[in-house]
Design a protein around this nucleic acid. Structure first.
Lengths: 80, 80
DNA sequence: CTCTTTCTAACGATATATGGTTAGTTTTTA
DNA sequence: TAAAAACTAACCATATATCGTTAGAAAGAG
């Protein structure tokens, strides 16, 4: 799978987790110390986040372990 | 955990997996379409790889799923 | 329709990822 | 100890991550 496709799916997954919790992009942004514009870009697959950021910043903000985050993302990918 | 520490541990984990298989940095490099100098830098924690690269490039090169890669890395972190 | 909230877009600045080259050091092995 | 293998270091170039700002579009509530 190429980078563009991967990141598009990753963004879709992040969006689905955020909406599942009932947060706006701004809610998530404040949790991760960033702004909603960047959250939007991430969810639209415009960026390719680092493992560090996913594991140590994003997953905890979503109240998940990094392993659960990746496990659920892989399932999400399979279902697409 | 800060980025520097995280990447140092990640590099150590990658090194341990590579050595477990019995590969040189050059062996791994050729598998991931890169050179041994960059593998050295990664193993020394000088870079913060993307989730895409870890999941789609590195883990398959180590004959692991991305979930197994992260799961084992988390165990590795705990043991340090 | 109007106001508010939410999201998207398009930038800028700085740091760094990625892939490459060349050189030199350390370790292994013959 | 000499040669080979393995690893580290220091760069370069290009693309992009990250964090920030400003503007505007889309959606919902009143």
């Amino acid at each position: 799978m190429d980078k563009r496709h991967f990141n598009h799916l990753l963004g879709g997954f992040i969006r689905s987790k955020r909406e599942e919790i009932g947060w706006t992009q701004s809610d998530l942004a404040s949790r991760i110390g960033n702004n909603s514009q960047n959250v939007s870009a991430i969810e639209r697959g415009m960026v390719s986040p680092t493992l560090y950021w996913c594991s140590e910043i994003l997953a905890p903000a979503l109240d998940m372990t990094s392993v659960d985050f990746l496990t659920e993302f892989e399932k999400f990918k399979q279902d697409k």
